[in-house]
């Protein structure tokens, strides 16, 4: 079994605000990739907050993203952040977004929020920081 799990449930808040960090070079290994395993390693103690541009990761696209043609290669393994967020939710991670970030993404963004993502009030995250052992911008 790769890596032990912390026996007491840790409380880690992972905050992502930098988004879209490279499609061709990243592919499956986007910033969200590590989150389910961090959740496992922490004994089920991770919460993930998506802030600023990263809130878009939790908003369903209106059309599928086409594969990318580069010369003779068709690259169909680009990152799929919505699928990644769904995996994170399925792993049991609480996913949070702050209401103003959702509003900033356009009038229909809130309607397209992925099921299970929780919306909190502005600066509601910071109010919760003292309840976490670790607060990391990832």
């Amino acid at each position: 079994m790769p890596g032990e799990v912390i026996q007491e449930r840790a409380r880690w808040l992972l905050i992502m605000e930098k988004a879209y960090r490279g499609s061709v070079e990243t592919q499956f290994a986007d910033a969200l990739y590590v989150v389910p395993d961090l959740h496992r390693q922490s004994g089920g103690g991770c919460d993930l907050a998506l802030r600023g541009p990263a809130v878009g990761y939790a908003v369903r696209t209106v059309a599928p993203q086409p594969p990318l043609r580069l010369g003779g290669r068709t690259l169909d393994t680009l990152p799929d952040p919505r699928a990644s967020v769904t995996k994170v939710l399925d792993a049991g991670v609480t996913v949070l977004v702050e209401e103003p970030d959702l509003a900033a993404l356009g009038r229909t963004a809130a309607d397209r929020l992925l099921p299970g993502v929780q919306v909190i009030e502005p600066y509601g995250l910071a109010a919760r920081w003292p309840s976490y052992e670790q607060v990391w911008f990832l």
């Binding site: 605000e17 930098k18 600023g52 600066y123 995250l125 910071a126 109010a127 920081w129 003292p130």
Partner: peptide, 19 residues
């Protein structure tokens, strides 16, 4: 831009909560 402003806002929220 907003990233710095938000983080300073986080600090302000914590201070406002008495920390």
């Amino acid at each position: 831009g907003p990233a710095c402003e938000r983080f300073v806002g986080d600090a302000t929220r914590l201070a406002g909560d008495g920390h």
